[in-house]
Design a protein around this nucleic acid. Structure first.
Length: 260
DNA sequence: AAGAATATCAACCGCAAGACC
DNA sequence: CGGTCTTGCGGTTGATATTCT
């Protein structure tokens, strides 16, 4: 099965984006919305491939993106989530307000790995979870036909990374999971995110987690996770970083709570 | 001051998988 | 139902910046 390239390569610009290209892309998306990446460059007057446009938008131009200066809370959360989820940067990014998967991945590789190694911690995930398999139904709009054979747009459930919210308390960094409550506080250094209705956000979060993390599927038949779920026999001494306060267990318990 | 070495991060690439035809 | 398209993800690259010698 041959696979067509995402775009014709000839005559397309590569490399860093100019401010003019940025504004063309931003203006186009502001007017027409995201999506249709393949046709977007042509329509927006850009000599870029759609993939490049998407990447630029998602990682740089999209409103609400926070750049640089990761706070200690964020470091902490990234390390913990990485320990739980491995290199599933998009999932990790979903838990960090305004951060992109690319930025987190870069930050992990350039800063956190070193930092962990310097403190004698092996920055390996607990478990290499398989890459998530999406279900047929989720994620996309699809066309279907009504009884008259007319084509109608059916809105399928779309997996939005929810408005990023923290799942843990941020004020007590070293005891981040002391509180059993599911805090939705945002990162302390982040003032760009709105206060949210905790009830609704929690609901959204549950939906998000249930669909996107898909722990049920992820963990099904997994001896390691069975063990983890059973709790008692799990040996925390295997953990890649200090767990004197059972941090990861608490993160995990939060996820379980959200799923219950 | 200058060249080398190292760090950083934006962007590219290939692949997987669902959607579409 | 099979081939193709589209999107999104994670790994990697390479240009630029910074630090070291």
């Amino acid at each position: 099965m041959g696979r067509a390239p995402c775009c014709a390569k000839e005559g397309l610009r590569k490399g860093p984006w100019s401010s003019q290209e940025d504004s063309l892309l931003t203006n186009y998306i502001n007017q027409h919305g995201e999506g249709h990446w393949r046709s977007l460059p042509l329509n927006a007057g850009l000599l870029r491939c759609g993939k490049s446009c998407r990447l630029r938008w998602v990682n740089y131009l999209r409103p609400g993106i926070k750049r640089g200066n990761f706070c200690e809370d964020e470091d902490d959360l990234i390390v913990r989530l990485h320990s739980l989820l491995g290199n599933r940067w998009s999932l990790i990014a979903g838990r960090l307000p305004g951060r992109t998967d690319n930025e987190i991945k870069n930050y992990w590789n350039t800063h956190l790995v070193k930092k962990l190694k310097n403190t004698g911690i092996d920055p390996k995930p607990l478990k290499n979870f398989p890459r998530r398999k999406k279900t047929q139904k989720e994620g996309k709009k699809c066309k279907s036909q009504n009884s008259k054979g007319q084509s109608v747009q059916v809105e399928k459930i779309k997996v939005f990374a929810p408005k990023p919210i923290r799942i843990s308390c941020v004020n007590s960094r070293d005891n981040s999971f002391e509180n059993d409550t599911l805090s939705t506080s945002t990162c302390s250094s982040n003032s760009n995110f709105e206060e949210v209705d905790v009830g609704k956000e929690k609901e959204n979060e549950v939906n998000f987690l249930a669909r996107d993390l898909d722990f049920g599927e992820l963990l099904k038949g997994d001896e390691f996770c069975d063990e983890f779920l059973m709790g008692e026999s799990f040996n925390f001494s295997k953990r890649p970083f200090s767990l004197d306060d059972n941090m990861v267990e608490k993160v995990y318990q939060e996820y379980l709570l959200l799923l219950s």
